[in-house]
Design a protein around this nucleic acid. Structure first.
Lengths: 104, 104
DNA sequence: CAAACACATAAGCATACACTTATCTGATTC
DNA sequence: GAATCAGATAAGTGTATGCTTATGTGTTTG
């Protein structure tokens, strides 16, 4: 699927920090920049990468663009992990089985 | 933690292919190369990256080195995902709670 | 409608990364 | 112990990537 984009997106620590911040609540790009020592274009580019990986989604609100976590990316990651559930400790194995069920 | 190494390691499609192959059963580096159009040094370098991310572990056997999936890397990934369990669909949420319990 | 604002895109640059071709290390076998 | 084999390491190279400084696009406000 788009595993490649997902793992590539998360391979960058700045993008993981952005994602983590968004996980704390939806925010626009300017608000995300606060306390992050990152230029406006860089933020925009990072958000673009996260968005095309479906880890994040946007919603225009006037002249602001609100960003929030998109569960789709996390789901795709879980589906990838589910393939290797035989390598999980026994207690986790049951969890992954359920995950697999969702794999419609 | 070593999330950085993990996501970086998995960002490369060749390394994911190697990991997937190892998930099918332990193998030495030469066996891994079969049908993979990859040079011996490239394979060795990829295995080095996967190993330092703890996605894979090795065991010397004579002049061969046997590689296998190391559950530690997958666990670390799951722990990362668990942080965002509030963004998972309800049914998955319960799974992630249990996962979090393992987080000793 | 002009200025200001939020954000995206363009273009250029320095570094990281995946590959290559040697070469080295360590183990086995004749 | 010399040749061979499995694998690691070294060094070099092209491309991807994350950044920068402009500049562009769309929206709001005076």
């Amino acid at each position: 699927m788009n595993e490649n984009e997902i793992f590539r997106a998360l391979a960058d620590p700045t993008r993981r920090a952005i994602f983590e911040k968004l996980a704390g609540g939806a925010m626009n790009a300017s608000a995300l920049r606060e306390g992050m020592a990152i230029s406006q274009p860089a933020m925009s580019q990072h958000l673009g990468v996260l968005r095309s990986a479906r880890l994040v989604r946007e919603e225009r609100q006037g002249r602001f663009v609100n960003y929030e976590v998109d569960p789709e990316g996390l789901m795709a990651m879980a589906r990838w992990m589910a393939k290797y559930r035989n390598y999980w400790p026994a207690r986790i194995d049951a969890l992954m089985d359920l995950l697999k069920d969702m794999d419609q």
